[in-house]
């Protein structure tokens, strides 16, 4: 199984990445960026399909809530009705998952390629030898030039800059696609999960090679771009200044203002 993975997916991507670095003037950082962009472009149809499925699921939200209220005491009936609703609308509850699942092997391969190509230790370098093609271009590129924009790509970024960038871009991407929940409990869970992943990746950035963090940042920025253009703008993300004030706090103020005006008028 590992052999099939290596021969069919990992090795082509790894050698492609190394060859690309040679073509780009022995610049491995640039090669990571170019390959990440290329992979994300190739995966656009899947990303598009995933976005569509998510949107379709979200459009069913009011009807699903109605059903949940209606059949709160009959879970079996609720499930039947929900499935019927999905069928009627022509969506699958896990439909938005498949494009994500298909993308994952490619991300894993890209991730492994970066880790292996950087060969931070002599042991890594030896391991790399078993994955390389006999292309002159690949042989001449090894060992890769690990410096990029002042970063040592095989080592973790000693500053917090990459960790902040990884966490920040991932959080923004999550905010763009996560609808605000009406139920306070659900809202709390959504907020937690929106924060959990970016924090997790920011934490990983502190200990993983910065080449990998570079890939995460670029991948997230492209994800934000794709989401912006396919999803039509910033999605569910709202800039703090544009956020509408909650009704409960604004209404009394208006009333108060009105009553004060009335008092003024009386005076």
């Amino acid at each position: 199984m590992i052999d099939i993975w290596n021969v069919a997916i990992l090795n082509p991507m790894l050698n492609g990445l190394i060859a690309l670095s040679e073509i780009l003037g022995k610049n491995f950082g640039l090669a990571i960026i170019v390959l990440t962009v290329a992979v994300r472009i190739v995966l656009i149809p899947l990303t598009f399909k995933q976005t569509q499925s998510t949107k379709a699921m979200q459009s069913l939200q009011p009807k699903l809530q109605e059903l949940q209220k209606k059949y709160a005491r009959n879970q079996q009936k609720l499930q039947q009705e929900m499935m019927a609703l999905y069928k009627e609308a022509g969506v699958s509850p896990l439909g938005c998952m498949w494009p994500l699942l298909i993308q994952f092997p490619i991300w894993i391969a890209l991730y492994q390629s970066i880790m292996q190509a950087l060969a931070a230790t002599p042991e890594n370098l030896l391991l790399l030898s078993q994955h390389l093609y006999s292309w002159d271009m690949v042989g001449q590129a090894i060992p890769l030039n690990e410096m990029f924009l002042g970063l040592k790509l095989s080592q973790p970024d000693p500053t917090m800059i990459l960790a902040i960038l990884v966490g920040g871009t991932m959080w923004l991407q999550q905010k763009m696609v996560t609808p605000p929940a009406t139920d306070p409990k659900q809202q709390q869970m959504t907020s937690m999960t929106t924060m959990m992943m970016p924090m997790m990746f920011a934490f990983f950035t502190l200990s993983f090679p910065s080449g990998l963090a570079l890939y995460w940042v670029v991948s997230n920025i492209i994800g934000i771009g794709i989401q912006y253009f396919i999803g039509g703008g910033w999605g569910y993300f709202t800039f703090p200044s544009l956020r509408p004030q909650p009704q409960a706090t604004t209404q009394p103020k208006i009333e108060q203002k009105g009553s004060q005006d009335g008092k003024k008028g009386q005076n």
Partner: peptide
């Protein structure tokens, strides 16, 4: 190769 570590085999 038995080295361990998330950044590949350790030194």
């Amino acid at each position: 190769s038995g080295g361990g570590g998330c950044a590949g085999p350790s030194a």
